[in-house]
Design a protein around this nucleic acid. Structure first.
Length: 426
RNA sequence: GUGGUUGUGGCGAAGCGGUUAACGCACCGGAUUGUGGCUCCGGCACUCGUGGGUUCAAGUCCCAUCAGCCACCCCA
């Protein structure tokens, strides 16, 4: 136990961390392009925030939260998502008093007590955006376009945008009634979970993966048919904007997001080939959430994407991400005196912007050259007693296997020059 | 929460009841008393996820437990 990580968590080792750095740099870059500013909220919040914000009857709140009492007997919860926190911060700091709309983005770990599987972890990372204060359908479309923009910049392809409108409380209520009416005689034929959903959340039945349920529900009234005029217009305009922004999408009338706060637009971005957990991003509009959390009546929209799943998809699609610069020069020193001079040289070179590595184990020349070879440095500098006696060092070009003696006073300048030359070759 | 599957050195992987737990890669050292990448030689698991049990004898059989992977569910 001492040396095993908690279930569903991951260590990001140096080998893979470069991908994360690159991914995050793209995220921040695109966020800036679209005018979103970063917000960092606590990793844990009062449990109540998620109960109210995400919704009591959601799976997240019912069975997936990491909830604990702190030493002051406060019930706290590790954030399962970040929309509630962003709304909370927005309200707590009364940011609604300033100019609107306000656009935030966040990147960070989220926690959900799920059974781990491909693309699903108990601690996972999300990037997301939230825009408060506008009900413009053009913003809905832009937010979707932004998500796609990110995926495309990363090099992902063959993604599908699934779009739906879940309506507002009015049309949802109407749809619910019609749906229950329709399903009334079929309830007993549904699967066990769906029988449970019938009274509680009949909408979810439309989303059931059970083949039998799907058949029974195929002809059921969709929310789209029941949208009120306002919601219908909004949905129509979102689609027109999407066409304008050249974002292909498919309508999925059974797309029901598992968070209670969504209204009108709901969307999901799906990738192939990464297993059953194929949604790499999703979001929607939440026009009642801010008020629900005790703020002014104000619309909002946002999405979140799962960073692990994006990385999985990148790997699946064979996309190679740029990696960090490699070591340029290895400094091999032999003996105490040479080690000291070597340390000084390394420092001078680093200050001149050269990536230098050296030996810290007092290894043999052979072992040091082997290390240099492993690092694939273009140049290895050999500082030994013979060279020191002459006030010089051996500069060995690893690829050609040729080397020459360079006087110490000229060494740094020589290496900096050689290193630049090497860069130009690449 | 349910089901399937796996768990042997840093990694990959043999062994499937019986003397010292193959092999490959990686790593370390040597052949070259100061020169890498190739080659050759040598070294590297009192131990088989953990805990019980069966047996004269268990990495090998049984049970439990933990963990990985995958699926359901749900979602990022």
């Amino acid at each position: 136990m001492l040396t095993t990580r908690p279930r569903g968590t991951n260590d990001l080792l140096p080998k893979e961390i470069e991908k994360w750095h690159y991914l995050e740099s793209i995220l921040r870059q695109v966020a800036a392009l679209y005018g979103y500013q970063e917000i960092r909220t606590p990793i844990f919040e009062h449990t109540e925030l998620f109960q109210r914000g995400v919704g009591e009857s959601t799976d997240i709140v019912e069975k997936e939260m990491y909830t604990f009492l702190d030493r002051g007997e406060r019930s706290l919860t590790l954030r399962p998502e970040a929309t509630a926190s962003t709304v909370r911060a927005f309200l707590e700091h009364k940011l609604y008093a300033g100019s609107l709309p306000l656009k935030f983005y966040y990147v960070g770990p989220m926690f959900r007590y799920d059974r781990p599987q491909a693309g699903r972890y108990r601690q996972f990372h999300q990037f997301g955006v939230e825009a408060f204060g506008s009900q413009d359908p053009g913003l809905d479309a832009e937010v979707i376009a932004m998500a796609m923009d990110i995926y495309e910049r990363l090099g992902l392809h063959d993604l599908v945008v699934e779009l739906n409108s879940v309506g507002c409380p009015h049309c949802r209520q109407a749809h619910r009634q019609v749906l229950q009416e329709y399903l009334k005689e079929k309830v007993t034929a549904l699967c066990v979970t769906c029988q449970g959903r019938f009274a509680k959340n009949p909408l979810r039945i439309l989303d059931c993966k059970n083949a039998h349920c799907r058949k029974l529900v195929a002809e059921a009234p969709t929310i789209e048919q029941m949208l009120c005029e306002e919601c219908r217009d909004h949905f129509q305009l979102v689609q027109e904007y999407l066409q304008e922004l050249q974002v292909p999408y498919t309508l999925n009338p059974s797309l029901v997001r598992g968070l209670d706060y969504y209204t009108k637009t709901a969307f999901e971005i799906v990738a192939q080939g990464i297993g059953a957990q194929s949604s790499i991003g999703g979001g929607g509009r939440y026009d009642d959430l801010i008020e629900e959390c005790g703020g002014p009546a104000m619309p909002g929209i946002g999405y979140a994407m799962g960073l692990e799943r994006i990385l999985l998809t990148l790997e699946e699609q064979g996309v190679v991400l740029p990696t960090q610069a490699k070591t340029q020069i290895f400094l091999a020193a032999l003996g105490e005196e040479a080690q000291k001079i070597g340390a000084g040289l390394a420092q001078e070179l680093r200050k001149a912007g050269v990536i230098v590595e050296r030996d810290y184990l007092g290894r043999s020349l052979k072992a040091q050259l082997k290390a240099a070879n492993r690092l694939q440095t273009a140049i290895t500098v050999i500082l030994g007693e013979e060279e020191l006696a002459k006030g010089a060092a051996v500069v060995r070009k690893m690829q050609e296997g040729r080397q020459k003696v360079v006087p110490l006073p000229e060494l740094v300048a020589y290496l900096v020059r050689e290193n630049k030359g090497g860069d130009m070759d690449e």
